[in-house]
Nucleic acid binder design. Structure first.
Length: 309
DNA sequence: AATTCAGCCAACCGCGGGCGA
DNA sequence: ATCGCCCGCGGTTGGCTGAAT
């Protein structure tokens, strides 16, 4: 890995920004000396309070720049070197599930940063998929056969789980039909999210922030070595692992006992289950759970009342 | 040897959410 | 309820490097 810190060029942008445009704030590649100062300071005082860190550490950098340098380069846990084939496979699977949620994807690949994965995707994987005739955004064929697009408008998406309910074709747009009756809301009423395609890449999903934040929480907590996961985080972690491994069966087995004996009763007396349990039951597919989590900011393991009919 | 070009990737940027005052 | 600060995210930029011409 070449050391870009040794670059002696500097960037110049015409429009200063609030944090990095101040006079006297250094920009561009980091020097080994700056790296040492930053690393030593964080070793001593820990991460966080990025805004004031440069002043405290004696660096002529903005807080953002310090954070980025630490997160992407200086952190001891950052793994350098080429992306291994198994890591590449993992990135592909996670991207198929999560879309351009680089921080989420990075959270599942030890030692890799979101920036590194993003760069690797843009420079390698997207091109690789395109060369294979696959749309890197949707993971679907770039040039489907003439008939297939018409069929797709009519036929529901085929879920991996044969018991899963079909997604509705509504004007060519597939919509999940999971219900959350305990919140007087059904996902079929998606007027607030028009023209959303279920598996059209998470990038285009509406109201993604809840999803981001919920999963971000998982991501952040996983960084802590002494983190003791709660049930929701464990369930979501297992859920993702099962998708990653394309072995939902293992995950389902782990959930089976809990599902067979629902212990939580909702406000209307209905049994409440987690999204993953709904997957197991067959009343909802993985894609639908992902959509549900996006639409409601739900982490898997949160208890909901899915339509078990 | 000089130049051009494409690949790579660290760093920058704008934006939005969380949170406390 | 509102505002401002801080942080983290995804998208983008642009300079270095090495291969090709």
């Amino acid at each position: 890995m070449r050391n870009l810190s040794s670059r002696n060029s500097t960037r110049s942008r015409s429009t200063p920004t609030p944090c990095c445009g101040k006079v006297g704030i250094k920009r561009g590649p980091w020097t080994p000396e700056e790296d040492e100062i930053l690393a030593n300071y964080i070793k001593k005082d820990g991460e966080g309070r990025w805004r004031t860190l440069p002043k405290r550490a004696g660096l002529l950098r903005c807080g953002k720049s310090c954070r980025l340098r630490w997160m992407n380069y200086l952190r001891p846990s950052v793994k350098r070197g080429r992306i291994a084939p198994d890591e590449e496979d993992l990135i592909l699977r996670l991207h198929r599930l999560l879309g351009n949620r680089w921080s989420l994807i990075a959270g599942r690949i030890p030692g890799r940063t979101d920036n590194e994965i993003k760069n690797y995707w843009n420079t390698h994987l997207s091109k690789k998929l395109i060369s294979q005739g696959i749309d890197p955004r949707t993971h679907k064929p770039l040039y489907p056969s003439p008939n297939s697009s018409e069929i797709a408008k009519i036929a529901p998406i085929q879920n991996s789980n044969p018991n899963s309910f079909p997604l509705e074709a509504n004007g060519g747009v597939y919509r999940a039909t999971a219900t959350r009756e305990n919140e007087n809301f059904t996902m079929t009423n998606l007027d607030q999210f028009p023209n959303q395609v279920i598996d059209d890449g998470a990038k285009n999903w509406p109201n993604c922030d809840g999803f981001n934040k919920g999963l971000q929480s998982h991501h952040e907590q996983n960084k802590e070595e002494d983190y003791v996961g709660n049930e929701n985080e464990d369930a979501f972690s297992l859920f993702l692992d099962s998708l990653i491994n394309e072995n939902v069966f293992v995950y389902q087995q782990q959930q089976q006992q809990q599902f067979q004996q629902p212990k939580i009763i909702g406000p209307s007396g209905e049994p409440m289950i987690s999204s993953s349990q709904a997957i197991h039951h067959g009343s909802i597919s993985e894609a639908e759970v992902a959509y549900s989590m996006v639409a409601f900011g739900e982490k898997d393991g949160a208890l909901n009342s899915y339509d078990l009919a």
